[in-house]
Amino acid sequence: MFANCLKSARHNKFGSLARFESTLVIAEHNNETLTPITQAVLSAAKKIGGDITVLVAGTKCGPAAAALCKANGISKVLVAESDAFKGFTPESMTPLILATHKQFNFSHIMAGGSAFGKALIPRVAAKLDVSPVSDVINIKSSDTFVRPIYAGNALQTVKVKDSIKVVTVRGTSFEALPLEGGNAPTEPAPAGEYKSNLIEFIKQELSKSDRPELTSASVVVSGGRGLKSGDNFKLIYSLADKLKAAVGASRAAVDAGYVPNDMQVGQTGKIVAPDLYIAVGISGAIQHLAGMKDSKTIVAINKDPEAPIFQVADYGLVADLFKAVPELTDKL
């Protein structure tokens, strides 16, 4: 027992003295609210230890910066508010991050593994001439990370040899750091001419929904090809509303035009890990399982008893969804 304590004390001392870990977290927000994945990245950053700085860039940074200042364990929030960051284009964000890194010399630069982080982080890594690590699900030490490969069918542990570790974090693999108990100061980020003439943001067409956001919802109800039409998806919506759930879909349902692309769960869509995932009329292809198999409880409703989804489902119901789903909605 004592030896263990001594060992870990020595290890900690070595860690803090020899390495001076300092992490830059790139906040994701939409100029109105902070995106929840940023809180997961902050938890991941805490696992590395050392100093945490958060960078908020955008055309309006106030709300996100104010929320982040309250997070416990952050040393400062750097704010870069400018028209240059319209659309959060990687071409404008990258030089800002490089300038910030030049000033503070971070050991780690991290962002969430969302569309935003995936577009930005590899570009930053290339400019720093380091190899990025994508979609990290566990942090073993300041240079050793675990990430899924082959659609989540294998877990690879990698040790990064580069001096700066540039990583994206899988949001569902880390608890969201609560935005309370802290009082970090805000400071202006290094000033510079960050507007890029290589890219121009034109517009965004976002799907409007009153339901919870898919990647952070605690309950998700997903429909697949078995729904047979976009109209029949209303069965899914009714069940989801009863459960206050977000609605997802398989690629088959998206490709068939039943629902928009941004509802797709899977390797090429969103990764979700809710408390409860209900898969309706989804066979359970490898690519779909990659996006939901870390859910705490999985329920499958499918009329094909051989469907692979039943191999991962905690509770399976072999039934016609057109009968079972309305009945389930009624009885809840």
């Binding site: 190899s131 690879q156 990698v158 399976g316």
Partner: peptide, 20 residues
Amino acid sequence: ARIEVVSVEDPPVRQAGSIL
């Protein structure tokens, strides 16, 4: 090589569920 692959392992296997 900029990274070293320490190990590649199977992901945790889910407990078998039940058909209701």
